[in-house]
Amino acid sequence: MRLIVLVKQTLTTEARIALNDSGGIEDAKIKKVVNPYDEFAVEEAVQLREKGVAEHVTVVTVGPESAVEASRHCLAMGADEAVRIDDSEIESTDSFSVAEVLGAALKGMEFDLLLAGQVAVDDNASQVAVRVAEILGLPQINVVSKIELGEGEVTASREADGQTEVLTAKLPALVTTDKGINKPRYPTLPNIMKAKKKPLTIKSLSDLGIAAPTPKVKVVAHTLRPAKQGAKIFAGTPAEAAAQLAEALRNEAKVI
């Protein structure tokens, strides 16, 4: 069984977000990492291979040259092969465009299970993986905390509002991972060295035989979360502070 994992490089979640001169997100000096939810997907795939349920794990990334670090990280975690599709020809990396590119790339690849994160922590879209499943006609199980691979099918538990659903999908299928499904490993030094010898292919849109997709939505502005004045702190004994707080909630904030 062959597995493919969709991996996006994102800014580390600890980053302080600031705007640059052209009004975009300043990312020059910020550490880049594998999107945390994709790391869960990679770990799950590597574990399935280690258990002998799967034979081969390929990670696929659409991103700039610097995203090669994300590919390398996944190879060092145990993926067998990485593909990076260069995004420099893509006009706007909206979810539609990225999904179209990934869809085109995956059409030429053989796999039984597609794994991805439930959301990318930078754009907070939760769209790309599901769109790819639609392009390829794959059934999907989203936001899962447990996966079991069987003969020609995958069973997974999904957290939904107010309920847990256990679903079985025919392979090939898409499963997106939630936190808590596993503990992603830290690559060891020997594995980092070994990763350097694993195949890492770079493809352009023309290699995929497609033109740059026309974006369906465009970002027109970024704004930072308005800085709060800093909390108004109430001092005194617990009873005194609580009385002032209750008063403020009622008469100032008017929320109760």
């Binding site: 800014l11 979640t13 980053a15 302080r16 977000i17 705007l19 997100i25 922590v121 930078d122 754009d123 907070n124 026309t214 974006p215 369906k216 939505v217 465009k218 970002v219 027109v220 502005a221 970024h222 704004t223 930072l224 979360r225």
Partner: peptide, 23 residues
């Protein structure tokens, strides 16, 4: 139409414009 949505765990927002009449 233009819509505002949180990004980067709510540390920032982006305003996006849809390019077509259906979305």
């Amino acid at each position: 139409p233009r819509f505002r949505r949180p990004i980067y765990a709510g540390k920032a927002f982006c305003t996006v414009e849809v390019q077509e009449a259906e979305y």
